[in-house]
Amino acid sequence: MTDAITLTGVSKFFDPSRPVLDDMSLHVKQGQFICVVGVSGCGKSTLLNLIAGLETASMGSVDVPSGRASVMFQDPSLMPWLTARGNVELALRLRGVGRNERAAEAQRLLTLVNLADAGDKLPHQLSGGMKQRVALARALAQDREVLLMDEPFAALDAVTRDLLHDELERVWRETGRTIVFVTHNVREAARLGDRVILMTARGGKIAREWEIDVERPRLIESPAVSSLAGSVSSALRAELAKVSNV
């Protein structure tokens, strides 16, 4: 399979003595679901912004052959004056979809995220999980091969997050997107990813990598996911310990 994202020797620094990312190389295959974990300030959001084209690399090259990626953030950032459908239609309009097709396409996307009958609701009427699903539908409306997610479920309660994991996994399988999912939640990473990448706490490098071939759909409480989360978690603590010793 071809690579959907290729990073070659990418460095990013605002202050050259303290790089946020340092000579990082990464290949993400098309259709892969990859999770990036690390402690706060390890550069995982910067990595995402580089792939999204919101920031440029100081050195090295970032290649996304399919063009720009779509992005989802921790804050759903829905336009508060537009309905759920209006928010999805805005993304379609900005993509250049004609007026006549927009309504039907928006309805299809809302159905995909299980919000078929909430299209006329305004953001302030929706729960956090529903807003985040509208944001997902909006990101999918951009019809881009690569979807970048920056801790999208961090602010949600456990029950909602659990359901959204199932939902996202299903949407990913139905749409065949390549997903880069940044999180500080190790279990979440083990639950969702084909691959988990652990960043060093400081210095902006890849500390370790895991390939996960647990059968899908997975359960967050399944033994395979738990044991993998355990091993990622202890590696993450080891990274943290290195910083504390400095």
Partner: peptide, 22 residues
């Protein structure tokens, strides 16, 4: 998948603000 969707739908119904409130 359909279980998930059904559960999600029920959760939505619990959390959705009634439109009458606005």
């Amino acid at each position: 998948a359909s279980d998930t969707r059904d559960l999600e739908h029920r959760l939505d119904a619990l959390q959705l603000l009634p439109s009458g409130a606005v």
